[in-house]
């Protein structure tokens, strides 16, 4: 009996299988240079690695081989900053819903797979190098209204501003936007409406956002159009790609807010 137990215990520990992958990575030396796909083989990829760790393995290999490493954006690596946007096999942040690239794990892929890795492609997000893109257009949209005015002086009493639970929840859902740009990357029109509508909704739903409510939506939509993003055709690709699962309801809200603002604004 006891011999049997000890025998079965030894077979439970198994080393994770290591994978060999073929990567087709977009290489582009600068904003104005011609880009192309380069093919690399990486081995020793463990299923528990994140996608970015796999990219690190690739870069280590390239450094050792004397090849310039692949430039890609990353920061928190825990799914909250959105810096790591890249387009993996045609999908922003990879094949699954509700995750950022850094939270995508290699167990999602099979040994021997070919993975195509591209930067987000939009005129408003120029490529800096390889997979790194310039998303400062989002900063300029935010600066055009994505803020509230606050009084100086003592901190107000907690809970002194009344707000319904429903509005607070909806505002929080919209505030979950991390500005990664997956909406723009996945939209066939490279439209930034999901991002802009999340910011507009976030503040329009809150009492603190009311003083700038009208100017905010007008300013942000204007800046969005100036930046050269495309128009929204309601395909819903943005909603499907958003790692924070921001919904199209926000775009409808922005449409309403915009119409309202157009009707009430005193500015020409």
């Amino acid at each position: 009996m006891s011999a049997n137990h000890s025998h079965s215990a030894t077979s439970t520990q198994k080393a994770p299988a290591s994978m060999t992958l073929t990567l087709k990575v977009w290489r582009q030396s600068g904003p104005h240079s011609e880009g192309r796909f380069e093919e690399y083989k990486v081995d020793g990829i463990v299923p528990d690695m994140s996608f970015l760790e796999m990219m690190d393995v690739l870069n280590q290999k390239l450094i050792k081989a004397g090849i310039e490493q692949v430039s890609f954006d990353h920061d928190c690596r825990e799914g909250i900053c959105g810096t790591c946007l890249m387009v993996i096999n045609g999908s922003a942040h990879g094949p699954d819903r509700g995750v950022t690239t850094c939270q995508l794990h290699m167990r999602r892929f099979q040994d021997g797979d070919t993975i195509v890795i591209e930067p987000a492609r939009a005129k408003a997000f120029p490529i800096i190098k390889d997979l790194s893109i310039n998303r400062s257009a989002f900063d300029r949209i935010t600066a055009s209204g994505g803020f509230i005015s606050v009084s100086t002086g003592n901190a107000p009493d907690a809970n002194s501003i009344l707000i319904s639970k429903t509005a607070a929840d909806l505002a929080m859902d919209a505030a979950a936007c991390i500005g990664c740009g997956a909406c723009v990357a996945s939209c066939k029109n490279a439209s930034a409406m999901l991002f802009t509508s999340a910011k507009v909704s976030h503040f329009a739903l809150l009492p603190q956002g009311q003083p700038e409510r009208t100017d905010r939506v007008l300013g942000m939509v204007k800046q969005m159009d100036i930046e050269g993003f495309g128009n929204c055709t309601n395909t819903g690709a943005c909603e499907a790609a958003c790692p924070k699962e921001i919904t199209l309801e926000n775009i409808a809200r922005m449409n309403r807010e915009y119409l309202r603002a157009m009707l009430v604004t005193r500015k020409s």
Binding site: N89, S91, R121, S191, A237
Partner: peptide, 16 residues
């Protein structure tokens, strides 16, 4: 607004 196209189509979970 999207001058160059992607090489691959989006995954089923993210297609429209």
């Amino acid at each position: 607004a999207r001058p160059s196209a992607y090489a691959v189509q989006a995954s089923p979970a993210k297609s429209v």
